[in-house]
Amino acid sequence: MKDPTEILTGVIFYSHLTSKRKEVAAFMAHNTLILMVEGQLSIETAGGKTILQKGDIMLVGKNQLATLTKIPSAEGNYETIVIVLQEDLLRTIALEEKIEVREPYTGSPFVLIPPNDFMQGYFQSVLPYVRHPDKKIRASMGMLKVREGVTLLLYAMPSLNSLLFDFSAPYKIDLKKFMLSHYHFNLPVEKFAQLTGRSLAAFKRDFKKVFDAAPRQWLLEKRLVEARHLIEKKNKKPSAIYLDLGFESLSHFSRTFKKMFGKVPSACIPAL
């Protein structure tokens, strides 16, 4: 089975790993509801680390760049249900329910939902679909389940209104601080611009002022310099770091590394 499995395209996902720790970089574009069924999930961002244990339910705010570490339980199982609360659906709910957000959300983007029978029952009703992906869930039924989840979230924590229904564009943030914290994520320049609250043209203009370089060139050089540091000073293997530094393949990493430093990454490994 592909992991994670899409139960409803782009909306409901089921992740099931057995006795295998896995670390991935991810961009969480939408508000996302997670149930930790088994094992442990570590979500690390520039702002800190959040850990989900068995039974935890968490709402993660949109536009988060994170490193996800999936850790199986002592019995060797890892299992999560992930429900993506797409903005189009949330806009529809806001219109139908006449929901208005008067104050911006200022809390943590990682909200642990207090245990309650309603949310537990909700996820129990989703489990049959995710554990039997061959039994295709109809899109209309799937979206009803998502709407139900939003309703129960607001019942449990009415204050989540301002997180779920904030449709404003990201405000303009400190570009230098953001890029130095997130350069290793494999995202197009257009996405970095969006996340810093800028148009692409404004992002390139501000980037040039801050770093005196074009974004793509700076990103490549920053990642390669960090790679060399990790290999030479931290004894990291090239195969263990290229994905974490935003390179899509080991061969591409090796070619660009050699072009910049005149030798392949493996030649930088300190002799024992």
Rank of each mutant, 00 (worst) to 15 (best):
F253H: 01
K98Q: 14
D3R: 14
H229A: 05
A169N: 10
K22G: 11
K172C: 09
A193G: 07
I7V: 15
A213Q: 09
P4Q: 14
T67H: 11
V264K: 15
D88M: 02
Y129W: 15
V126I: 15
P114H: 02
D88Q: 13
L8Q: 13
V84K: 06
L245P: 04
K54H: 14
L187N: 07
L127T: 15
K62Q: 10
T151D: 13
Y183C: 02
I173G: 04
E97Y: 01
G55W: 06
E23A: 13
N235R: 10
S266H: 08
P4D: 13
Y155H: 08
K233Q: 08
T256Q: 15
Y105W: 07
L219S: 00
T92F: 06
T80F: 04
K259C: 05
P115D: 09
I99C: 00
H252A: 14
F118A: 12
D244T: 00
V130H: 09
R91L: 09
I269H: 11
A139K: 15
T50S: 12
D166G: 01
L243M: 05
S15H: 14
K177G: 10
V189G: 00
L33S: 01
T32F: 01
A240G: 02
L243E: 03
N161W: 00
L224H: 01
E87W: 06
D166F: 02
A26R: 04
L41I: 03
E97F: 01
G262D: 04
K136N: 10
K236P: 00
I137E: 08
Q64I: 03
T92D: 12
L230R: 06
A46K: 04
F110C: 11
Y14V: 13
R228N: 05
A25T: 09
L35E: 07
H182M: 06
F192P: 11
P114L: 09
V126Y: 08
R223H: 04
L95H: 08
V24W: 06
G55H: 05
K20F: 11
S239A: 11
M58H: 01
F261V: 13
G262H: 07
E96Q: 12
K70G: 04
E190F: 11
G55N: 12
G262C: 06
N186R: 12
L219K: 10
Q64Y: 05
G48W: 05
